[in-house]
Amino acid sequence: MSVSAEQRSKGPPVSFTDAAVIDAFRHIPDYLARDAALMARGRLLDVDCLLGPTVQPFHVSIRAGAIVDITPAPVLMRSSRFSYLASPQAWAAYWQPMPKAGWHDLLSLTKRGEATLSGDLHPFIAHLQYFKDVLALPRRHGFGGAA
């Protein structure tokens, strides 16, 4: 089902499908594996967390800055240290080549209520720019055919 962001709520003029957002998320481990500099910034990070669209979160396992596993939630009794979940329209807007004001940063999304951050935030905050850049990778790789 294709819906525009504006149909869901007041938001940026970005067309997307939930399936496209979920598919883009599945590709993030591959995008990251091709970015040695970004991997190096996460070299001291080992964490299991819950990331992704609210309609389909993913259990993400990070070891030494690499995503070694990404599995759709729920997984029976799987633990996660923290979660960052955003609406599909938020991800679609965040991944635009030139995101609109207010849709351009993980924390602008939490401030506007399009994303939620919960759990033990230490690994997220200590590697904040890493997470911002990892979760922005679909932007660089032409989400929605933009690049």
Binding site: A101, H104, D105, L106, L107, S108, T110, K111, L121, H122, I125, A126, L128, Q129, K132
Partner: peptide, 27 residues
């Protein structure tokens, strides 16, 4: 929009976290 306690604690690099927090405020 964030807790300033994160800005100065021994287990988080102050320079990195300050820059990472404000990076999103740049157009």
């Amino acid at each position: 929009w964030y807790d300033t306690a994160w800005l100065n604690r021994p287990d988080v690099h102050g320079g990195e976290v300050c820059a990472a927090l404000v990076s999103g405020l740049i157009a």
